[in-house]
């Protein structure tokens, strides 16, 4: 029981981190059908800058805010320099964002050095609670909480505000939104920056969770995020939450019970979804 609970908490925490990454990916894709392969790079930058700001200021809150701001600024640069010039050409977009991913992760090595860096958990979040013989690690619960909070906030913005309305309308029919006199490119820029910020937030939270940050972590997590986006359905925000939890839990259980299959299970899940429901598990829309 104790074990199952711990595995579940662990899986949920990982799932939430993947969700933060996938949320930006799926909205960016839904809005402009741009698949951003550089997203993992933004995630890694978030992780490194989080560790950096934590070392400088000593405050976890400031470090997370610093990381998110770094992500937002990088997102702005990415959209303006990398996505804009090849707008509308899918093959070029895929190629160029992957190239930028390469530059981002190499830049990390230039700025922060090629070695992995240890990341500390703040005192008030380290340790664990014990309740009725069950040990719960604080930081994991914290990640789950942040994930749910972000989901609630973004869901609120999407469903209850004007900008959310525009974004949702843009996902369904971009041309119609443009015809109504809304500058969809500007909306896209904002969504892109927000998505980059979320990726950086995931990175900043990931750093104390894994204990170390390294430049290759971006690609590793980006692969999981892609799997989530496929399973959850491209462009579906709630779908990406459910799929991320599914992938997180599957990974966590498998890593314990059948360790050799832990990555394979996600691939199999993705393959099954691609065969039977290529539009994603949690979307009604036809792909």
């Amino acid at each position: 029981m104790d074990l199952l609970l711990n595995l579940t908490v662990n899986g949920l925490a990982t799932g939430m981190l993947i969700f933060l990454l996938a949320a930006g990916l799926t909205l960016i894709f839904g809005l402009m059908s741009v698949l951003n392969f550089a997203h993992g790079g933004l995630f890694a930058w978030g992780a490194f800058s989080g560790v950096f700001f934590y070392g400088v200021t000593g405050s976890f809150l400031i470090s997370v805010i610093g990381a998110v701001l770094t992500g937002v600024v990088l997102g702005f640069i990415t959209e303006k320099l990398i996505i804009k010039p090849v707008y509308g050409n899918h093959v070029q977009q895929i190629l160029i964002t992957l190239g930028f991913m390469l530059v981002l992760s190499e830049m990390l090595k230039v700025v922060f050095g090629p070695n992995q860096i240890a990341a500390k958990t703040p005192d008030y979040l380290s340790g664990s609670w014990e309740a009725g013989g069950v040990i719960l690690i604080k930081y994991r619960l914290f990640i789950i909480l942040v994930g749910l909070l972000v989901f609630a906030v973004v869901q609120f913005i999407l469903k209850r505000t004007k900008i959310g309305l525009v974004v949702r309308a843009g996902v369904i029919n971009k041309e119609m939104v443009q015809a109504l006199g809304i500058d969809i490119n500007k909306v896209f820029l904002y969504v892109f920056m927000a998505g980059a910020g979320l990726a950086a937030l995931a990175g900043a939270l990931m750093a104390p969770y894994s204990g170390v940050v390294y430049a290759e972590m971006g690609l590793e997590f980006a692969i999981l995020a892609f799997i989530v986006v496929v399973i959850g359905g491209m462009g579906s925000f709630p779908g990406s939450l459910l799929a991320a939890i599914l992938v997180g839990l599957a990974g966590s259980y498998m890593a314990y019970f059948v360790p050799s299959l832990s990555l394979a299970v996600n691939m199999i899940l993705m393959a099954v979804v691609l065969i039977f429901r290529p539009q994603g598990l949690f979307t009604a829309k036809e792909a």
Binding site: L35, F37, V91, I94, E220, L263, A264, M270, A271, L274
Partner: peptide, 23 residues
């Protein structure tokens, strides 16, 4: 599996599959 769909899927699927092979 993926070439029925848009070009993104093949890119993503091969990326993930090659990650699996590396592991």
């Amino acid at each position: 599996l993926t070439l029925r769909l848009k070009s993104h899927f093949y890119a993503m699927f091969t990326l993930a599959l090659s990650g699996l092979f590396l592991v």
